[in-house]
């Protein structure tokens, strides 16, 4: 199982959406595409499953282009928009797609009920028309449909968005199980915790290009600061405070009354920060030292954050 993208470019109108994306995934495991809104994750996935074509470059799955139906048969794709028909029941929607993959209705039904039970989409709900589902229920059904033909490769575009925390964790554990069974899972997300907790490898994607790639640990070691100090200051972070802090951190980001400081050596930096703030007559209402997250890596590499404040 090899999924490979070579220098993929895509334009919409005059706008460049993917600028030379290359990646190679060879091992089973969970591969995350992490990036903010509009980064190009969905566009890349559409190309990966053969629904869109690149302007230049190519995507190969086991050495073949995804336009080849036999390649697509081995991929399970859950689009960002679940693609369900409101006038049909959950069962009818799911069995329709399963039949396009040649899964017999009995097997598909059985799998649907099994996974549905697990993700909190019981048989009684599946028997109802999808028009009456909540957003989260639709999302769950959309993800389950991509699993019904037991694909080798799963391409999931923001699978957990809209799901409640219980269902998210349940889906994570399901994906981990699938990884255990040797499946390759490629998922797009803008949830940090999802990428950090779940993914074996992550590609950080910003403005149509991959800015870094590796395991979450590697990325943080390689691109992240040693530590992040969060300070909240009574009266907020103003110019004066910022200029005081600038000397103590290699990077500062202000979020409301809080400042995030990237520091190399927190044991040295924290006492000095407190000293200098109190010295200037400002009082600290909160101080928190933590290890960097992928978001901090992203911020460092791109100057922007994935998750909002």
């Amino acid at each position: 199982m090899i999924v490979e993208a070579r220098d993929v470019w895509k334009r919409y109108g005059g706008r460049v959406v993917l600028r030379g994306v290359s990646l190679r995934i060879e091992e089973p495991g969970i591969y995350g595409l992490l990036g903010p809104n509009g980064a190009g994750k969905t566009t890349f996935m559409n190309i990966l499953v053969g629904v869109a074509s690149p302007d230049s470059g190519e995507v190969l799955v086991n050495g073949r282009p995804p336009k080849d139906p036999s390649v697509r048969a081995r991929i399970g794709f859950s689009p960002q928009d679940p693609g369900l028909i409101d006038q049909l029941t959950g069962f009818e929607n799911a069995l329709f797609y399963a039949e396009l993959y040649g899964v017999d209705p009995g097997t598909a039904r059985e799998r649907l009920i099994g996974i549905g039970e697990r993700l909190g989409l019981p048989r009684s709900v599946l028997a109802r028309r999808v028009g009456g589902y909540s957003g989260g229920m639709k999302k769950k059904l959309g993800v389950i449909i991509s699993l019904l033909h037991d694909p080798e490769i799963l391409v999931l575009d923001e699978p957990t968005s809209g799901m409640d925390p219980g269902a998210r964790r349940e889906l994570w554990s399901l994906l981990e199980e699938l990884r255990g069974r040797g499946k390759m899972i490629i998922l797009a997300t803008h949830y940090m915790d999802e990428a950090e907790r779940l993914c074996d490898r992550v590609a950080l994607i910003n403005d149509g290009a991959i800015v870094a790639e590796g395991s979450p640990g590697e990325l943080k070691r390689k691109h992240g600061p040693r530590a992040v100090v969060e300070v909240a200051i009574r009266g907020g972070v103003d110019e004066a405070v910022e200029s005081i802090l600038r000397g103590e951190a290699e990077r500062i980001e202000v979020l409301g009354d809080k400042a995030l400081l990237h520091v190399e050596d927190p044991d040295r930096a924290v006492p000095r920060i407190i000293d200098r703030l109190y010295g200037a007559g400002r009082s600290v209402t909160l101080l928190h030292v933590r290890y960097p997250s992928l978001d901090d890596v992203f911020l460092r590499l791109t100057g922007r954050r994935i998750e909002g404040p």
């Binding site: 697509r72 689009p79 928009d81 693609g83 028909i85 797609y97 396009l100 449909i145």
Partner: peptide, 14 residues
């Protein structure tokens, strides 16, 4: 518009 075309074209349906 229903979003079904994307799914259909991603399946082995030609």
């Amino acid at each position: 518009e229903a979003g079904t075309l994307r799914r259909i074209l991603a399946s082995p349906t030609t």
